[in-house]
Amino acid sequence: MISNSTGAEHPTFKRELLATLPNLRAFAISLCGRHDVADDLVQDTILKAWAKQESFEPGTNMKAWLFTILRNQFFSQMRKSGRELQDTDGAFTSRLSVHPAQVGQLDLEDCKSALAKLPEDQREAILLVGASGFSYEEAAEVCGCAIGTIKSRASRARNRLQELMSVEDYHEFGPDSSSAAVVTKAIAS
């Protein structure tokens, strides 16, 4: 790949941006729970990123850079509006390209509504490290906070999701926790 010293011509910039879009958009949708709001966020992010592309250093983490722009936009809009974006869009599964029956429509709805109940900072943390593929270090950078903060937010988010979601895998172990432990132990050893 040819690297341009001027920074003005970045065929790779657009390509990398395009490659990151599905993940970035999934993050936006999961973060605000609404497709329309998420898509506005993504559009703003693209415009901002394009305008600031001179400040992006080729070879560095484009994904983290774009996620940072998007989440800053999200939180500044929330501050401005002074309230949470509570409504989530209906008919979510009708938008999915994968047939819901294959993945379990209930599972998806379950996960979506559980996410919506988390405080924004915890939702952001668990999405970044648990779904979008960031390390704790990268997530801390994206959010502009300490690694320890991300870790504790993600951990609280996990505990809360666990309470909110019905986890069939757990029930498969049966109600007897000691026998479940034996099974777990047997599998682990």
Binding site: R25, K112, G130, Q162, D169, A181
Partner: peptide
């Protein structure tokens, strides 16, 4: 034992979250 139960549940939660996210990404 309880800790092991807990981690099994946590794994299930993580898996559900990743599956949800992957589905959104496929749009």
């Amino acid at each position: 034992n309880q800790d092991q139960d807990k981690s099994a549940v946590t794994d299930a939660v993580s898996m559900k979250l990743r599956r949800y996210y992957a589905t959104v990404m496929e749009e």
